[in-house]
Nucleic acid binder design. Structure first.
Lengths: 184, 184
DNA sequence: CCGTCGAACTGTACGGTGTCCAGCATAATG
DNA sequence: CATTATGCTGGACACCGTACAGTTCGACGG
């Protein structure tokens, strides 16, 4: 496995990202280090720096990558239910990737391309709710912040509340926000 | 400065906590390590473990400590404005301690005595809003999650939005939540 | 007053982290 | 074929949290 020096492993950005995803799935957030990713690829830790600027860059890419499994709401759906469904799906996704949530918050929400695509789909629905474009940004933010926060509670270690309870709460409070948004 | 072994520095839990607060104020969250706190006290790093269980325990104590500068809302205030004011004050407090917010989220909200005191004061106001006691827990959670999230955005490194804008948004969306809560 | 005991603190060390540097072999380019 | 650019390595630096064993002191029972 350890090549003689100078030989190439043929790494790519995507390979590194995939390895990061694997390591994250197997060993969780705490087990995700440059060294563990490199080991997973049979490569020296430093080799990653030829393809990735930073550890934070790698983690950011991983975050956005995970978001890729989220289906954007159809543009012709009922706005309120459509928006509620995306956020609940986001909640569910985050709950199934518990170690991810703190990192997510640490980065204060992903800013990758997938995240932006979701945001735009939401803006379309909000327009049909009567929310104009610059107000839409604020509402999207509110919804995301809210959902992320609930996901954080649901994945807390202490976990005095079950994810199901929190999901129910989220459903209610999301509606409060949506009603408020459509009303102003 | 380095005492001969065996001599005592006379540390206390409070001294350690105070040192942690100092170090945090001077060097931020990233600069807050067991070693830096110990150095601030002129003491070996391990000495702290006689007074504090963990680094996480120390950080938790620090978090709750910072919350101490928050005045609970008077019980006879107008419920809605009272609740809005506490949350806005919390937001302001967090914005002035930027490095603190990610840690706060990581811990998914403080659970210390000061935090609980605030929660109870809020419950009182909610009762006067017509929210019964077990629903109050949910609403308090929603308000805190929401506010924490906005503080996170306000203290993000990228900071595409100013704290003032976010504060204004928060004020509006908090009201949406409060209206929704009082209506159900 | 003295012996004992427990607590406070030390030095040392282990295993981990992210990341930089210099060197070298290979692949790509002229 | 000569040259340059790239990918990778070994090694190192500066940290981190914390466990272990040992020393020395303050306090307390006899």
């Amino acid at each position: 496995m350890p090549r003689t020096p100078g030989q190439r492993a043929g790494l790519t950005y995507d390979a590194v990202l995939a390895a990061a995803r694997d390591v994250f799935a197997e060993r969780g957030r705490a087990g995700l280090s440059m060294r563990s990713v490199a080991a997973h690829l049979g490569v020296a830790p430093n080799a990653l720096y030829s393809h990735v600027a930073d550890k934070t860059a790698l983690v950011d890419a991983l975050l956005d990558d995970v978001l890729g499994s989220l289906a954007p709401p159809p543009a012709d759906a009922d706005p309120r239910t459509g928006l509620r469904e995306v956020m609940l799906a986001t909640f569910d996704l985050l709950v199934t990737h518990p170690g991810l949530v703190p990192t997510y918050l640490e980065r204060q929400g992903a800013r990758g391309p997938r995240a932006r695509a979701l945001g735009e789909a939401m803006t379309v629905l909000l327009a049909r709710l009567g929310v104009d474009e610059d107000a839409a940004g604020r509402v999207v933010r509110a919804l995301i912040v809210h959902t992320l926060g609930y996901a954080a509670l649901a994945t807390a270690d202490d976990a005095s509340l079950t994810p199901d309870q929190l999901r129910a709460d989220l459903e209610v409070t999301l509606d409060w926000l949506l009603v408020g948004a459509s009303r102003s």
